[in-house]
Design a binder for these strands. Sequence first.
DNA 1: CTGTTAGCGCTTTCAT
DNA 2: ATGAAAGCGCTAACAG
Lengths: 341, 341
Amino acid sequence: MPRRRRDAPRAVTIADVAREAGVSRATVSRAINDSDLVTAETKRTVEEAIARTGFVMNARGRALATGRAETVGVLVTEPLDELFDDPTYGRVLRGIAEGLTGSGFLPVIVQASSESERALALRSFERRSVDAVVHLTPYRGGDLLEALAGTGLPVVLCGQLVDSPYEGVFSTVYSDDVRGARLAAERLVADGRERVAAVLGPADNPATVDRRRGYAEVLGARLDEARTVHTGWDSTGGFSATAALLETHPDIDAILAGSDRIALGALAALRAAGRRVPDDVAVIGFDDHAIAANASPPLTTIAQPLVEEGQLAARLALEMIAGAAPRTEILPMRLIPRTTA
Amino acid sequence: MPRRRRDAPRAVTIADVAREAGVSRATVSRAINDSDLVTAETKRTVEEAIARTGFVMNARGRALATGRAETVGVLVTEPLDELFDDPTYGRVLRGIAEGLTGSGFLPVIVQASSESERALALRSFERRSVDAVVHLTPYRGGDLLEALAGTGLPVVLCGQLVDSPYEGVFSTVYSDDVRGARLAAERLVADGRERVAAVLGPADNPATVDRRRGYAEVLGARLDEARTVHTGWDSTGGFSATAALLETHPDIDAILAGSDRIALGALAALRAAGRRVPDDVAVIGFDDHAIAANASPPLTTIAQPLVEEGQLAARLALEMIAGAAPRTEILPMRLIPRTTA
DNA sequence: CTGTTAGCGCTTTCAT
DNA sequence: ATGAAAGCGCTAACAG
């Protein structure tokens, strides 16, 4: 039989409590789990014994017996440095934590950017170290998704996949990019803007595709193909793309940016070109990052309900753990009017 | 006896492999764990059976039998939003992940900013869901540290505590703030700066105390009390503190900043006041964040070996899991010369 | 309502 | 070198 670790004093177990309380281990277990198969009386006796012995339940024994670890893994495949660059994830993470409180389940963030880390994380999932997985960054790495499906664990994706290939397999929660884009576009129309440009994120990103669609639906001819460009998500991309755009299309009177960081770059480029915002050119960002409110001038933008997204993801995970079928939830975006449009 | 979860197909266990391979479960276990009590021959037989059955070890059974979960908890008590504001943690986290690779242990980040989350995390630790805890942010909350000590788990603190009250109880790893501060100060002395100011972080922060000491040791009378001020860690604090300082002490020719963000604020204040950097006033930051290199002008600063800190913390945790006594490691800082000093 | 008993999946001593 | 058997700490079906 296994020997105990080193000379650590043996931990108090449910058996000790049972002896102390003068009941069976089963009764102690029931009392602990607040079953209504025990009298309030007995429950109290057990509680006192627990207090006297200083018993704390061992998670491993319980996990083995119940088949649950009472944890949900939050999978993050971005390198942590980049992850920490982007406040988006922090908000979603907070939502997940909030959505889990009260359930007894604990979120454990599993970081897996390198190939070896991914393998490790996957193995840990296969071994059932967690009861469900919330995938924060499902865009990259189709094989990872395939492997996740292979684990048989409940999986929730935070973010939309093109063609939703895993519908019915994974749950998904994301914000309605098309609708959000429409909100921005409608604002510009109401404002009488006629020659709109779009400085979007990478063309292969599903969010980009949807936003572009939303813009187009509302703006029609007001948003010309030629005035639609793709760049990286950060301000550098926004700056250079906008600068180039101002060369070729000096007559634009509004810019729809793919992210707040892009918008900040655009703002800088406009300033450099001597355009006034919003008088000459209106600018609307996307995301409502902290930088949007603090920008000068404060940036009008579209807010994604990130915290709510996290909360919902947590709830979907719990649902699936309880046996529910996977489902997809789409959350609404909001226009945050500030000064740039 | 417990019923299996829903109608999930029963997972392949070690018993199935044993049957398939025609050996006992004990032998399978030995083969898996690469014991040298099994012939290479038998080992191969077992491996084939594993491949055929698709067996993956169940972490819970193993954890119960061995008394280890093969995970180390990374405790984070900052609200995630703030955490994600500060690239510091990302780097340390990366180091921890790196330091753990190959050990078979998995880092699980446990976020516990609210009181209830802290209680949850603590309970999970007491229940032995992890084998050790690395505490990323040990400055706040003395009762949490007390509670951590109470768990009896191996604990590694990333960061220095004043008076190191937990020496001999927790392991600690941190960078040598005194030495780092001396490096910065020495640079200014070599540069012939005579009227140095210090715009430091909060006075009650142990890092601040040490840095201030390092500055004082080297600069002596060159750093006057009256030119030493405390503010928050961010650029806003740096800006206003520096602006105020320039009012009362217009003759300063160097600024030692408590963080790179403070330094950026200082840079802005100097620019606003019409001072040239480094011609009129030299500036040295602290941390070597990404913003330091990208600042204009690029910021001379002191680099903390954050990734190494994380690696070391991981190693200390593994050591203690293996039974080693807690110990403290202090890492050296480096001056990163750029253009501001 | 409570106790008895049989597991959950794995490891390890002991005997061979 | 291998197998039998006894746990690790907890839960839950079953019988009373």
